[in-house]
């Protein structure tokens, strides 16, 4: 599972670079999230803008990633694409997370 973490503006921005979070990668996603959230800012922002598809196993892995955080840490989401937003809406999980339209509004990306 390909996740990329950068720290800045008091936020641990974790970008999912794969296009799917499904049953075949759910455990790997959760494990990688644990590693990437053990250190760094308490505010974690998961950028899902590259993710076109998620199933209930992937959704469960995101919930598990939030539950396994240390005390005082918070996981927000950003950049839900249409099919991903549909899964969050139908399961009502959209009420559990703070969901931002895009990550760039919180964490300006460095100009390269």
């Amino acid at each position: 599972m390909n996740l990329h973490s950068t720290h800045g503006n008091g936020i641990n921005l974790i970008t999912v670079t794969d296009t799917r979070i499904d049953s075949s990668v759910a455990i790997s996603f959760k494990d990688t999230m644990r590693t990437l959230t053990e250190q760094g800012p308490d505010h974690i922002l998961l950028d899902l803008s590259n993710v076109a598809f998620i199933d209930s196993s992937g959704l469960g892995a995101i919930v598990a990633s939030m539950k396994q955080l240390g005390r005082g840490k918070q996981l927000d989401l950003a950049g839900l694409t249409p099919d991903v937003a549909k899964v969050f809406r139908l399961t009502r999980m959209e009420t559990v997370f703070n969901i931002h339209k895009n990550a760039a509004s919180l964490v300006p990306r460095p100009v390269s």
Partner: peptide, 25 residues
């Protein structure tokens, strides 16, 4: 059926959404 999501974060369900999604869609 829908899960009760008005619970402490530790008690949030991590699965059991499959049939809900199938029935909704």
């Amino acid at each position: 059926l829908h899960h009760d999501l008005d619970v402490a974060p530790d008690a949030l369900p991590e699965g059991g959404f499959g049939w809900l999604l199938i029935r909704e869609l």
